[in-house]
Simulated assay, not measured.
Amino acid sequence: MKVALLIDNLNSGGAQRQIVNLAIGLKAEGADVTVITYTLGEHFQDELRHHQIDLSAIARPSKFKTFLGVFSEIKRLQPDVVCAYMFVPSLMALLTKIFFWRPKVFVSERFIEHLMTDWAKPYCRALYPLAAGIIANSQTQAEILKKKLPMLRARIRHIPNCVDTDTFKPAHELAISPGTLKMIGVGRLTEYKNVKVLIEAVRMLHFDRKLPVSMKWVGREYEERGVENTYYVECVNAVNEKGLSGIWTWEGQQKGLAELYRTSDVLVHPSYGEGFPNVVCEALATGTPVIASNVIDHPMIIQEGHNGFLFDPHNAQELADKITTFFKMPPATRLAMKENSRLTATRYFSREVMIGSYLEFFRKA
């Protein structure tokens, strides 16, 4: 099977992480895979090279010429399947289908409905009848799509994200570190990540409850290249104004996430909503429990007291309470949570499970 995977760039985003996982998994199953991009971003480029996966980067002098470049590349490759992540790449893939009928085109929506503000969404969805399949990485979004597009219900499939459980794995021996509770948050700094509620919760823990805690936030600090991220600036100012600069660090974009999870006690993921969070799967795979907002698919992943806790994302007090509960757990209970976290990831989010679902969909659609 010859497969072209289309996405805007290889920046450090969740969709980029998953399309790289898909490329690696498909190649391991014997597929001939090429990844096509058309804007700057090289965070995952070395990983593709390591696995000897072809990368075709289209120059972008203008939007029209970008489409012509993508169209020409797909026509040159003659793939059996084109799979595009996100609306603009999906729109390009579906327009290509009009002029070049051969490949099956699959499109993937990676966010939850109310967060999808992309200009291309209505145009892309108008062309969904041309798609062989429509993939949502969250069960919630798959159900929303089935209601919005009842005529295409049979073509809509929920395929959750995967994690490389060989890279994201616990330390050789699971253990609980005494003393300071080391918390980590991961994600690009945007409003829907809800970092300000986390900042207020950390203030309560540090000043009101006198708990020994530390916080690392890992993720790129710019919205787009060369554009200041005002939300990040606001968060930095909030940390400083609340007197937390001694216990809160901004780590920026990082590649060694597995080790950062392993050296943390808990991932705190306060997002208002997204598709299916990579960081939750990655943390669980390393045996790191997760305290996550009670939204979207999080309740399907996190079981209270089993592998983490859930909280109202609008309630800093409740978040502080859940962190306090975790901190005060006996070591044996926290160790069991670490073991349960790893088991959740290996059972539901392995690369083999995701690739099997994609291959079945590609072949049967």
Rank of each mutant, 00 (worst) to 15 (best):
V197L: 09
K147F: 00
V33H: 05
R334K: 15
T263S: 15
I135L: 10
F326L: 09
N340C: 11
G287K: 06
N315M: 03
G13Q: 08
I199L: 11
N240V: 08
E224I: 02
I291W: 03
H114L: 09
F207P: 01
P89L: 08
D164V: 09
K97E: 04
N315Y: 02
K169N: 07
M300R: 14
D208T: 05
T34H: 09
V88K: 15
C281V: 12
V266E: 03
R347L: 11
Q18M: 15
K2V: 04
L335E: 07
G275Q: 05
F111W: 00
N21E: 14
F326C: 06
Y358F: 15
R363E: 14
D54Q: 13
N137G: 08
L55V: 04
A93G: 10
L181D: 02
V197T: 15
I301E: 01
V295I: 12
S293R: 06
T324A: 12
I184H: 06
K121M: 04
D32H: 08
R76S: 13
V227M: 07
F111H: 12
S271H: 02
T190C: 03
S350I: 10
T167W: 00
E143P: 00
V35M: 02
F87K: 02
V82C: 09
D80W: 06
N340G: 01
E352N: 11
L359W: 01
V236K: 14
E113T: 04
S341E: 00
P122T: 07
G30H: 11
A84C: 07
T66G: 02
A258Q: 15
S293P: 00
L174V: 01
K255S: 15
L174T: 03
H172C: 01
V239N: 06
G25W: 01
G41P: 12
V213S: 01
A175P: 00
V88F: 12
I199D: 05
S214D: 07
L189G: 02
F362N: 10
V202H: 01
A4E: 02
F311V: 08
